[in-house]
Simulated assay, not measured.
Amino acid sequence: MFFRKNQRPVTRTPHGTVYGTLPQRPEPPRVEYIGMTLAEMETFERILLHAEECTRKARPDLGYSRSSTDLIGRLYQSAGAASVTQSDPGRVRIPVQKGDFMWLEFAIRDIEMYRGNPQTARDARQLLNRCNALLGQQRAVIHAGGTPMFDPDAPGPVSVDAPELPIH
């Protein structure tokens, strides 16, 4: 068995080697956000709850999962913060992380696998496509408390040809 001798931290510079320093750490990846309207937020909630219901009916052995309700609660907290900065409910943009899109992908899979409502699956696919189209067009500002929200003075998103989703 070979043992590696503990080596002192070293930083190599163009001028030579500096002993006893740690190398710089890379920057953490930037969290990307897109802005959803209140109507799209309600559609997102309806899709997640329908997928959870389909899964619960088809697979009662899996038990209850709080992950989608935790996500919905977190998104409504962001919606509350966004509504404070924007008095017009029609212009409120709720920041949704890129990582939260995977819940739409899982919901689509569960709805199709467990034979849920096909119209809800189409709405989910349309919302996922709209979210992917808006990604990269928004800039989020993190305010005190760690709650993400968009700057109300920032320019609005570039219009995508997809209309807002209906609420069923």
Rank of each mutant, 00 (worst) to 15 (best):
P23N: 03
P23I: 07
Q24F: 05
R25I: 07
P26H: 13
P26S: 14
E27A: 15
E27L: 14
E27I: 11
I34C: 10
I34T: 08
G35T: 09
G35N: 07
G35E: 06
M36G: 10
T37E: 11
L38S: 12
L38A: 14
A39W: 05
E42C: 08
E42V: 07
T43W: 04
T43M: 06
T43Y: 02
F44S: 00
E45M: 01
E45P: 00
R46A: 14
I47T: 00
I47Y: 00
L49F: 03
H50Y: 02
A51W: 00
E52W: 06
E52M: 06
E53A: 15
E53C: 11
E53W: 12
C54M: 03
C54A: 04
T55D: 11
R56K: 10
R56Q: 04
R56T: 05
K57A: 12
D61M: 01
D61F: 02
L62K: 04
L62S: 07
G63Y: 03
G63H: 05
Y64R: 12
Y64N: 11
Y64K: 14
R66G: 12
R66L: 13
R66P: 14
S67V: 15
S68I: 02
S68W: 11
T69N: 11
T69D: 08
T69P: 03
D70N: 15
D70E: 13
D70Y: 14
G73D: 03
R74G: 11
R74D: 09
Q77A: 06
S78M: 15
S78I: 12
A79C: 15
G80S: 13
G80T: 09
G80I: 05
A82N: 02
S83T: 08
S83Q: 11
V84A: 12
Q86R: 10
S87K: 13
S87W: 15
D88V: 10
P89R: 06
G90R: 14
V92T: 09
I94D: 10
I94G: 04
I94K: 08
I94F: 06
P95M: 01
K98V: 05
K98Q: 09
K98A: 11
G99S: 13
D100A: 08
M102T: 07
W103P: 00
L104Y: 00
E105S: 04
F106A: 10
E112F: 05
E112Q: 10
M113Q: 13
G116C: 01
P118Q: 02
Q119P: 06
R122A: 14
R122K: 10
D123E: 09
R125S: 11
R125D: 10
R125K: 15
R125A: 09
Q126Y: 05
Q126P: 02
L127T: 05
L128A: 03
L128Q: 00
R130C: 04
L134Q: 14
L134F: 15
L135K: 04
G136I: 05
Q137G: 15
Q138K: 13
R139M: 15
R139Y: 10
A140S: 13
